[in-house]
């Protein structure tokens, strides 16, 4: 397996051994002091769209490895505003760094950037398409909490129709033969093309209207936000919203090893009282972005193998 020079564009490009290797490398990053691994290297952060957590965690990951960072967080002050093509922006900025992380509003922008660049490109989100480092940190969190990835029972709840994190996670979990439960109001259920793909891979899944239907059966509950904009009117939204709020009282009889996850930010889909239960993993999950991103930076720049 060769990671040096590799682009990280889409979870769909990755093989199971590659994913496992990234997760194992992330685990090592938590253990050993890696302050000097990327000394002398520079990470370019090109954020054509606002982001706080992805950008800050990449910068933090780079600094923990001893690397420096250059970049912009707001394209309105950059040459993009003057009409420079994405191709040209990449051709120029790659001269300033050893690896680039990019967030861009258009789907497929990271793929184009990777074609332009000779340094590795890491996709930090290309519009509603892919956000592979989020998926990897989700997998890392599951592995860390559950001790394994294979054969788990995983439920996803909330907006499954438009949520890119759950689409990518479902696809990734299918490599590990997990049983998946999709909990959503009918109008926000998993899109057919994702279900078809699971069928093709012989993955068992089922659709459910309420969290209570499956909560006692699963090892992982991955909750996501339901956005008001997805509903025709306030009343419809209010009706659905309340069904999808996770309360402490709903956790009676759950498995001891249950992990509750959420990509954050949450609005009200998980009540604060749940934070104090042993099942809450969402803040740990956010923290896991650091070792996973450290592993990716170190692997693609070739400072480790």
């Amino acid at each position: 397996m060769r990671f040096k020079g590799k682009d990280i564009i889409s979870i769909n490009d990755m093989t199971k051994p590659e994913i496992i290797h990234i997760l194992e490398t992330a685990k090592k990053m938590e253990k050993r002091s890696s302050k000097k691994l990327m000394q002398g290297k520079i990470l370019g952060t090109l954020f054509f769209e606002p982001s706080t957590r992805t950008r800050l965690s990449f910068e933090s990951a780079a600094k923990r490895l001893g690397a420096q960072t250059v970049g912009f967080a707001d394209p309105s002050v950059s040459s993009v505003k003057k009409g420079e093509s994405l191709w040209d922006t990449i051709k120029v900025t790659e001269k300033y760094c050893d690896v680039i992380v990019m967030r861009h509003p258009h789907e497929g922008s990271a793929r184009l950037a990777a074609e332009a660049a000779s340094v590795p490109i890491i996709n930090g989100g290309d519009g509603p398409n892919q956000h592979p480092t989020q998926t990897l940190l989700d997998l890392y969190t599951i592995k860390k909490c559950q001790g394994k990835l294979t054969g788990l029972k995983v439920a996803m709840s909330g907006d499954l129709k438009y949520g890119r994190t759950v689409h990518s996670l479902a696809a990734a979990l299918s490599l590990f033969n997990c049983r998946v439960f999709f909990i959503a109001p009918p109008e926000l259920q998993m899109p057919k093309h994702i279900l078809d793909e699971l069928d093709r891979r012989n993955i068992k899944y089922s659709l459910h209207p309420r969290i209570e239907d499956v909560i006692t059966k699963v090892d992982v509950l991955y909750s996501t936000r339901i956005q008001k904009e997805r509903f025709p009117n306030e009343k419809e939204y209010e009706k659905v919203k309340n069904i999808f709020i996770l309360k402490q009282s709903m956790l009676r009889g759950v498995k001891k090893n249950l992990s509750i996850m959420h990509p954050l930010p949450r609005v009200n889909e998980i009540m604060k009282e749940v934070d104090d239960t042993p099942y809450a993993e969402y803040f740990e999950q956010a923290g896991n972005g650091i070792p996973v991103r450290m592993a990716l930076l170190a692997l693609v720049t070739g400072v480790i193998r």
């Binding site: 994405l86 191709w87 258009h106 789907e107 497929g108 922008s109 793929r111 184009l112 290309d126 398409n129």
Partner: peptide
């Protein structure tokens, strides 16, 4: 992205009958 930049598009055939094509970019 192909609708916003001056670039070549690329599609791959993912199903033959009926024909389904996947955009290499989005």
């Amino acid at each position: 992205i192909t609708r916003h930049q001056d670039m070549k598009t690329m599609f791959t055939l993912v199903q033959k009958d009926p024909v389904r094509l996947k955009c290499h970019y989005c």
